[in-house]
């Protein structure tokens, strides 16, 4: 429902707010904020080269990935390194997650218990990936104030899940006021125990937008467990063939 709001109500609101915000830095509404984040972070198409560093106590492992993204929902990822994982591919759309392993040469759908596992053993679960852009449908919230995070002035938004089956019943996000990037997210369990912290940093200007070139996920329950995503190269609005986001791409 909030989605529908985003579609036609928001442009009006945005225009209004844009007018208003020049006049004063008024506290935005949650819906507005979320919409702005989406507007900033969603791209028609993008291509990135990413290094994923997974740390577990003393063990560190690095993966290199090449990914394509489209809109909020679609992503295609291919692993380039280490050689053990080279050629492994993953494909995500709004509702499903697929995997293709060179040793098996068969498309396999990731579902059920497997969704809850960390991708490549990292602190980001497949479920987290699937849910990443789904805040608007899953949460309702309130902007509770302003804080400075990492030297950036941010709106603090407290989100509560609207349904009982949402993976993280509560989230707090700090949204950079000028870049509209959620520079820090705290993911909470139902009891209020902090489970994970996502931070986005190394924000650079690409074209007419700002993009975080580093994401970090820290497991707050099990000490010493952390995953870092470093974007080595990002290109936006590149022409992509339709088939990239289909299982045919997986099998190529």
């Amino acid at each position: 429902m909030l989605n529908k709001l985003t579609v036609w109500f928001l442009p009006a609101l945005a225009a209004l707010l844009a007018f208003v915000s020049h006049a004063q830095a008024a506290t935005p509404t949650v819906a507005d904020l979320l919409a702005k984040i989406d507007a900033n972070m969603t791209y028609d198409t993008r291509e990135s080269f990413i290094t994923m560093r997974v740390t577990k106590s003393d063990r560190v492992k690095e993966y290199k990935m090449h990914s394509y993204g489209r809109g909020q929902d679609e992503a295609a990822i291919e692993y380039l390194a280490p050689s053990r994982d080279e050629g492994t591919k993953m494909l995500k759309n709004a509702t499903e997650l697929w995997m293709w392993l060179p040793s098996v040469e068969k498309t396999q759908k990731i579902s059920g218990h497997m969704l809850r596992q960390g991708m490549m053993g990292s602190d980001m679960s497949y479920e987290d990936m699937m849910d990443a852009a789904r805040w608007q449908t899953m949460y309702t919230g309130v902007v509770s104030g302003e804080e400075t995070v990492d030297g950036r002035k941010c709106w603090k938004v407290e989100l509560t899940a609207t349904a009982t089956d949402v993976s993280y019943p509560k989230r707090i996000i700090w949204v950079d006021e000028s870049a509209y990037i959620p520079v820090k997210q705290e993911l909470y369990a139902l009891s209020g125990t902090l489970l994970k912290t996502w931070t986005m940093s190394d924000i650079r200007t690409v074209g007419n937008r700002q993009f975080p070139f580093k994401m970090t996920v820290v497991d707050e329950v099990q000490t010493g467990s952390m995953t870092e995503l470093i974007f080595d190269k990002v290109t936006f609005a590149i022409p992509l063939q339709e088939e990239v986001f289909s299982t045919r791409w997986l099998e190529r």
């Binding site: 899940a161 993976s167 993280y168 019943p169």
Partner: peptide, 9 residues
């Protein structure tokens, strides 16, 4: 939880 939300205590 029974519905699938994460919880930790």
């Amino acid at each position: 939880t029974v519905d699938g939300a994460q919880n930790a205590l």
